[in-house]
Design a protein around this nucleic acid. Structure first.
Length: 491
RNA sequence: CGGGGUAUAGCGCAGUCCGGUUAGCGCACCUGGUUUGGGACCAGGGGGUCGUAGGUUCGAAUCCUACUACCCCGACCA
């Protein structure tokens, strides 16, 4: 495995591929980086999914499931939307295969052409709004608060494992509201849910803000986002929440009668996070020893490894460990006792470090004698002996401490890599040589943003929502600006 | 779609320039023994249409042609 991941970007790719494959997380399939999440990796994702799902339900949302295929004609209804997605759609044109005449295998049967092509959903706004038309008649039907967990396909020109695969698993929330105000509140509420999840579950600090028009979702009036900083100094968009205005309601003719018996178009939002969060998790905390998982998301929070020379010793350790496991389980700690005889202790230590298990307990003859256990934490790699009595409470506290420590570490890293630039030279120097987030003034035009991107590959990651007003001059054009925005190179 | 690279055992690679025993190494796997507090050691063993198709040659992993797949860098994007 490549060393010095944190400081040497060129090693990143090798490190990353080694990591995800060896850690049994995922592997690239032949189809444009389609993501296959193996069992261990999936169990991490499943915990994330469950936590998010609970948060959606707490905020009043219900789950539903809509079709995979969307008739092509649906896409032409919202102009910006089709513009945004047309270039990356997988299209179903035929419905049958046949044996090749030359006997070399199978081929698409040219006689089985579809009347109207079907698009594999790149996102579900169109099919959902087509459905909502039938579900919404009265203000009494609103708000409609629905979430869908689904896989979608965007045929990207270039894929990147976890961060941009052709097929990915995500959730997309789609809500309909009677008023503009209520829809905006929903949009903001959900970006806050995402930020809450990122910080409190993933231990990943995020910036909140809105996107510049260039980066806005196709069909949205306003796009809110959370952005995280990865260990190599690049930004990663971790979640988005869109205020869609009445664009989709008008495109799909979704109207309702309000309490004054007046026909109105509904106001909409949509919001989503994807398996990209797995990439974010890996890239936020991992080190050269492998994954580092925040305890709240770790499928296994504590692993116990016995150290023994004889069967009798193992038997003794088994008996000693039994009540400890019971105590830990009582405190809802996910614990695994690995007393396989097929692997050696050293091998197990490395294996669980690789998988990012937050806490490891080792127990051997020496410990039995002293009534102690050896506790090692994954985040700092520190080892320490504790008395066996009350070890459950020690571990519980330690897990909470690790969760906090990971967040603080990531936050410190972000602070160290967040800078202000007041001149063009300063800006270029930071982007080229240091990376990270750069707060700088911008004249507010798309042309300037594009020019900065062309020159430096840096884009506006977000415009802070509650950013301080401050008079300044655009770093590129020198035109007046009232607020700094956040620039970075990104994935 | 442009530029670069790679393809040899489950994984990682050497061998290719300069054709010539039976294609090799590390990890992993299997058997036996000794081991077990940070990826053990010794001995033995199994596993290969050398990416595909054609060509040159007495002889091809090696030379030639075409094709395919994957990786990296760009444009595009969550």
């Amino acid at each position: 495995m490549a060393k010095n991941f944190v400081t040497r970007e060129e090693n990143y790719s090798q490190w990353y591929n080694d990591l995800v494959i060896k850690a049994n997380l995922a592997e690239n399939s032949a189809v444009r980086g389609c993501m296959v999440i193996k069992p261990y990796g999936y169990s991490i994702w499943e915990r994330m999914q469950r936590a998010l799902d609970d948060m959606f339900k707490e905020t009043g949302h219900e789950n539903a499931y809509f079709p995979l295929f969307i008739p092509k004609s649906f896409f032409s209804r919202e102009a910006d939307h089709v513009e945004g997605f047309a270039k990356e759609c997988a299209v179903v044109t035929h419905y049958r295969l046949r044996n090749s005449p030359d006997g070399s295998g199978v081929e698409v049967d040219p006689d089985a052409k579809l009347e109207e092509e079907l698009i594999v959903r790149p996102t579900s706004e169109t099919i959902i709004w087509d459905t909502y038309r039938n579900w919404i008649q009265s203000y009494r039907d609103l708000p409609l608060l629905i979430n869908q967990w689904a896989n979608v396909v965007r045929w990207e020109m270039r894929t990147r494992l976890f961060l941009r695969t052709a097929e990915f698993l995500w959730q997309e929330g789609h809500t309909a509201h009677a008023t503009e105000q209520e829809a905006i509140e929903e949009t903001e509420k959900m970006i806050n849910v995402y930020a809450d999840f990122a910080e409190n579950w993933m231990a990943m600090p995020v910036l909140k803000g809105i996107k510049s028009p260039n980066e806005r979702f196709a069909g949205a009036v306003e796009t809110y986002c959370i952005e995280a900083l990865m260990q190599d100094g690049k930004a990663l968009q971790a979640g988005t929440s869109h205020f869609l205005g009445q664009n989709f309601a008008k495109a799909f003719n979704v109207q309702f009668l309000n309490s004054e018996n007046v026909l109105e178009y509904v106001w909409a939002t949509s919001w989503g996070v994807s398996t990209r969060l797995m990439g974010a998790l890996v890239m936020s905390h991992s080190d050269d020893h492998g994954l580092v998982l925040p305890p709240k998301l770790a499928p296994v929070q504590v692993v116990i490894v016995p150290i023994y020379k004889s069967d009798e010793q193992l038997q003794l350790i088994n008996e000693t460990v039994e009540p400890i496991i019971a105590d830990l389980k009582k405190l809802d700690i996910r614990v695994k006792y690995d007393n396989r005889t097929t692997q050696k202790p050293g091998w197990k230590f490395n294996e669980y470090e690789f998988q990012g298990v937050p806490v490891r307990i080792a127990i051997g003859p020496r410990d039995i004698e002293n009534k102690t256990v050896e506790v090692a934490r994954r985040d700092t790699l520190e080892k320490k002996s504790y008395q066996m009595t009350c070890i459950d409470v020690v571990i519980k506290n330690l897990l909470e401490q690790i969760q906090k420590n990971l967040y603080i570490k990531a936050l410190d890293f972000r602070e160290e890599n967040t800078r202000k630039a007041d001149t063009w030279d300063e800006f270029v120097d930071i982007i080229e040589n240091k990376g990270g987030f750069v707060y700088a003034h911008w004249d507010g035009t798309s042309e300037t943003e594009q020019a900065i991107k062309d020159k430096t590959k840096a884009t506006i990651r977000l415009i802070p929502i509650e950013g301080k007003k401050e008079q300044g001059k655009c770093i590129l054009t020198g035109k007046p600006s009232e607020q700094r925005v956040v620039f970075a190179r990104s994935y």
